[in-house]
Amino acid sequence: MGNNTTLPVQATQTSFEVIEALRQADGAGVRELAAHLSVPKSTVHDHLRTLTEMGYVVQIDGAYRPSLRFLEIGGETRKRMAIHRVAKPEIQELAIETGDHANLMVEEDGYGIFLSKSEGQRTVNLDTYAGMRVHLHTTALGKSMLAFMDEDRRSSILDRRGLPAVTEYTIDDEETLRAEFEEIRERGYAVDDEERVKGMRCVAAPVIGTDGTVLAAVSVSSPKSRMRGDRFEVEVPSEVQSTVNVIEVNIVHE
């Protein structure tokens, strides 16, 4: 009885491992997936057939890929989130005002998820997109949320997800990171100086609910050449915090 009850869980895990492998490989065939996952080709074939029939995987030019069904699911989930509905127009306005990338991030399962982004007239090409998942400590957005979180939640995330370095400037030492959290709480916003993307700087502030819970974070990202001096230390932080204030007021009445 005990063994039978574990089989559905194992099957589900394998299906998602197949989907994740397809995502990372940007499409693959049965043989490639079987080798990558170290499972029989027949097992991979069965999972792909089921996922294809359910519409979660498609086959194009002989290679299997995750379908846009995931975009549908994620888009519907995001649409139902009050923080997205309230923040979206403010993020768009912030991008127009600054001319740069404006972003909204939430924390989920110990990661930072880019929930929304908007581009101003002077933006550069970045790898970010709605739904992208990153380690919180690598971004100003994530650091601002971590700094204002409950200590138990913060410690749980740091222990569980670790502090992997993305660039040579990523803070991968917990003592140094915690010292920065104190600075963030004192000034009310966080900065990211090439810590996830070389050549880019970012300023972010958390969106705090009336009960003190961290709901999200808002940021502006810009090339380091344009984000310096008073713009980095005064102007952009002021614009970001002003946007956060509007979102915090509006979310109460959502």
Rank of each mutant, 00 (worst) to 15 (best):
T6G: 00
L7V: 15
P8V: 12
A11P: 00
V18R: 01
V18A: 05
I19A: 04
E20H: 13
E20V: 14
A21L: 06
L22D: 06
R23I: 13
A28V: 07
R31T: 12
R31D: 15
H36A: 13
T43H: 10
H45T: 13
H45N: 12
H45Q: 14
H45E: 13
D46M: 11
H47N: 13
T52E: 14
V57N: 02
V58K: 13
V58H: 11
Q59E: 14
Q59G: 02
G62Q: 09
R65D: 01
P66Y: 09
F70L: 10
F70S: 04
L71C: 05
I73P: 05
K79D: 12
M81S: 09
I83T: 09
I83E: 10
V86M: 06
K88V: 12
E90Y: 09
I91P: 07
E97I: 10
A102I: 03
L104R: 01
V106R: 02
E108Q: 14
D109Q: 12
L115N: 01
K117F: 10
E119S: 15
Q121M: 08
L126R: 04
T128L: 13
T128F: 15
Y129I: 00
R133K: 15
H135N: 12
L136D: 03
T138I: 06
G142K: 01
G142I: 02
S144Y: 07
S144T: 06
L146E: 07
F148V: 01
M149D: 04
D152P: 00
D152F: 05
R154I: 07
S155L: 11
S155K: 13
I157S: 03
L158N: 10
D159P: 04
R161K: 15
L163W: 09
T167H: 03
Y169D: 10
I171Y: 01
R178D: 04
E180W: 04
I184H: 01
G188D: 10
E194V: 00
V197D: 09
V197Q: 08
G199A: 05
G199T: 08
M200D: 00
R201C: 05
R201K: 15
V203L: 07
A204Q: 09
P206H: 02
I208R: 11
I208D: 02
T210S: 14
V214Y: 00
V214L: 01
V214R: 01
A217R: 02
V218D: 05
P223M: 11
R226W: 01
R228E: 08
G229V: 07
R231L: 13
F232T: 06
E235C: 00
E235F: 04
E235Y: 08
E239W: 06
V244F: 08
H253N: 13
E254C: 10
